[in-house]
Computed example of a mutant assay.
Amino acid sequence: MPIAVKDFSWDQNDKMVYLTVPLKGVKTNKVDIFSSEEYLKVSYPPYIFECLLSHPVDDEGSSAQLGNGAVIFKLKKTESIEWSQLQSPDSVNKEIMKQKREEAIEKVHKRAQEKEKGKSEVKRNNEKFSINQMMEIEESDRQRIADLKQSERNKATDDLERWKDEQIKIAEQERLLKEKLQEEKINNKIKKEKLKAAEKENAEKKENVFDSGVRQTGHITIKHTPRVFPTPVRESTTPLEDEWLKKQAESRRVVELEDKDLSEEEKNPLWLRDKGNSFFASGDYQSAISVYSHAIRLNPNIPGLYSNRAACHLKIRNFFKAVEDSSKALELLTPAVPQNAASRVKAHIRRGTSFCELEMYVEGLMDYEAALKIDKNNDQLLQDADRIRNIIQTSSDYS
């Protein structure tokens, strides 16, 4: 699936526009460049750069140069005016973009045909049939490849937008939780102050009646309500904790598989999780993935299975799968309570690392910062986040 290049840079003067597209370590012999008066494309798998220019240029007077890890376009303006932006606003319109791409290809072919007119009439007539056939085949192949690439780009864009929406929802849930905790803290403080005032008032009343008689002794029976979580009721987030306990209970329900070849242990997701952990510890990541996947089929509501499988995908450099499993683990690790904080930190780190390996450093930094909000005193997390910020800053300075 091609990755769209966004970190290009450009400059201009009265006559020329200079555009630099980084090759990201790809060898120059694997770079495919296409340009016309309005449309530019640089393809160097797995990356691709497309640009619909805001103004037409003189294609004959323009050039593209490969070297020093980048493609440098020198585009000659048709009019001596200052461009307010490089890309046309129509770039976001897929239909117009497709039309401009086809028009550019057609213009290039027409220009090639016009150059061929200078050759002898006899040779042109003899080769006319074969040339037309080849052009039809090439056009069909180009269109097929363009459609395939567009489909992959659309899928990648939809997946990224869906993931961003999920992150917005998670952030909103965390914000509401913080506001609720703050409100409960303030209410508890008010209750404590009222309690102190009442105790003080009762003490003063008792002092006033002390001389009227001898106090009678007595005893008070105190009963404590049993709680699953160790925090007191007045300091806890009871609704969220109850919701987490309900989800934990549901996650222990196992789907019954009618398979006589499976032993009782092989039908237990927790036993399978431990088995996968032992494979992971021995470095057999593919076997660990198979075991975790079987456990997920038995019970798809245990977040640790997805998080552990994401760690395996990260080891074998299957970064897109690692992002997908980490996101699923975070989805199951809700609501956010202290009891699942450590698991949320691991899932954020694994997804953030996967994004960084895919050179999506901004998204990776968001996950590391989310982990730091949970584990504020983790020195290693602080160092990793600073290193990612430096990479982002360095890339911005280069652009």
Results as ranks from 00 to 15, higher is better:
2 P>N: 06
9 S>N: 13
10 W>D: 14
16 M>Q: 09
20 T>W: 00
20 T>I: 11
22 P>F: 11
29 N>F: 00
31 V>D: 09
34 F>L: 13
36 S>V: 03
36 S>F: 01
39 Y>R: 11
39 Y>M: 15
40 L>W: 01
43 S>P: 01
43 S>G: 02
44 Y>M: 15
50 E>N: 09
52 L>K: 04
56 P>V: 10
58 D>L: 09
59 D>S: 14
70 A>V: 03
72 I>S: 13
73 F>P: 07
75 L>Q: 10
76 K>I: 00
79 E>L: 05
83 W>I: 04
83 W>N: 13
88 S>Y: 01
93 N>I: 01
99 Q>S: 12
99 Q>A: 13
100 K>W: 03
103 E>F: 00
107 K>E: 12
122 V>L: 14
133 Q>N: 08
135 M>D: 09
136 E>N: 08
138 E>L: 12
139 E>H: 02
144 R>F: 12
144 R>Q: 15
148 L>Y: 05
150 Q>C: 05
153 R>N: 08
159 D>K: 09
161 E>H: 06
164 K>A: 09
165 D>E: 11
166 E>G: 11
166 E>S: 10
167 Q>I: 03
168 I>P: 00
170 I>L: 15
170 I>N: 05
173 Q>E: 15
173 Q>P: 01
174 E>L: 14
178 K>C: 05
180 K>T: 10
181 L>N: 07
182 Q>P: 01
185 K>V: 00
186 I>E: 15
190 I>L: 14
190 I>M: 11
190 I>T: 07
191 K>N: 15
202 N>W: 04
205 K>P: 02
208 N>F: 02
210 F>E: 15
211 D>N: 09
213 G>S: 08
215 R>L: 13
215 R>Y: 05
217 T>M: 09
219 H>A: 13
220 I>S: 09
221 T>M: 12
224 H>R: 12
225 T>A: 08
225 T>W: 00
226 P>I: 06
227 R>C: 09
228 V>E: 13
233 V>W: 07
235 E>F: 03
235 E>N: 12
237 T>P: 02
242 D>W: 00
248 Q>D: 10
249 A>T: 05
250 E>S: 10
257 L>D: 03
258 E>T: 08
258 E>Y: 06
266 E>T: 04
267 K>L: 13
271 W>T: 08
271 W>L: 11
271 W>K: 14
275 K>I: 02
278 S>M: 12
282 S>Y: 01
287 S>G: 10
288 A>H: 01
290 S>W: 00
293 S>Y: 05
299 N>Q: 12
299 N>L: 00
300 P>A: 10
303 P>F: 04
308 N>K: 07
308 N>H: 05
313 H>L: 08
313 H>A: 10
314 L>F: 05
320 F>Q: 15
326 S>F: 00
329 A>Q: 06
334 T>A: 10
337 V>E: 11
340 N>W: 00
341 A>S: 13
344 R>I: 01
350 R>Y: 02
352 G>P: 03
356 C>D: 04
361 Y>H: 15
366 M>I: 06
368 Y>S: 12
368 Y>I: 11
368 Y>E: 10
368 Y>W: 07
371 A>V: 03
378 N>S: 11
383 Q>P: 01
385 A>L: 11
385 A>S: 15
386 D>N: 15
386 D>W: 00
387 R>P: 02
388 I>Y: 05
389 R>F: 01
392 I>P: 06
393 Q>F: 00
394 T>V: 01
394 T>A: 13
395 S>H: 07
398 Y>I: 07
398 Y>K: 14
